[in-house]
């Protein structure tokens, strides 16, 4: 299926609003500036999506499935070598394993991302508990489960305090969900 400029813009707006709120929450957690790059939008097969996430997919990722008015996956990914730095910035002197801190960071980023969408579009979405998994292989099993030709892949990159440390937050929506979103935004044809 092809989408016109107006619809692609609407998808971008979802990414902008969601990631903007997620970035604000990360900024609060870190008490520092978090910059947001422009939203990347792709309507692709899961296989193509898998090849798109490969570079970062080799990093550290935390995954949440979402269910309710919208169905899909939210995930966070960052380079292995940066994860300890980020966790320490957030947990301070609380002595907690890096992975456990980042699981909750993803929960907070995902929760705030979805809160923005839900409040804007009057939706209700549940977030499943975090899963620690490599994203490409997770997408493989997800593909088998949902059996859909195309998904909407929305990606945002967050850079922390103008340093070289960054993370990506990603949202996949299933076809029914992105159609529904377009309807709610009043731009579906």
């Amino acid at each position: 299926m092809n989408y016109n400029t107006l619809e692609i813009d609407a998808f971008k707006e979802i990414g902008n609003i969601g990631s903007g709120n997620a970035a604000t929450s990360l900024s609060t957690l870190l008490d520092t500036m978090v910059d947001l790059e422009i939203t990347e939008i792709n309507v692709v097969s899961i296989q193509d999506c898998q090849s798109m996430v490969t570079t970062e997919g080799q990093g550290f990722s935390v995954i949440h499935e979402l269910h309710g008015d919208l169905n899909g996956i939210f995930w966070f990914v960052m380079r292995e070598e940066d994860k300890q730095f980020l966790a320490e910035c957030i947990a301070g002197d609380l002595n907690i394993a890096t992975e456990l801190v980042l699981e909750e960071v993803t929960n907070i980023l995902g929760g705030n991302y979805l809160k923005a969408l839900c409040d804007m579009l009057s939706l209700k979405i549940d977030l499943n508990p975090p899963i620690l998994s490599e994203i490409t292989s997770y997408l493989g099993s997800y593909e088998n489960r949902i059996n859909q030709e195309q998904i909407l892949y929305i990606k945002n990159k967050l850079t922390i305090n103008q340093q070289s440390v960054y993370c990506c937050i990603n949202l996949i929506l299933e076809p029914d969900s992105f159609q529904f979103t377009l309807q709610k935004l009043g731009v579906s044809h």
Partner: peptide, 9 residues
């Protein structure tokens, strides 16, 4: 006490 602060929630 949750990150899921959606109005509906």
């Amino acid at each position: 006490c949750s990150a899921m602060g959606q109005q509906a929630m």
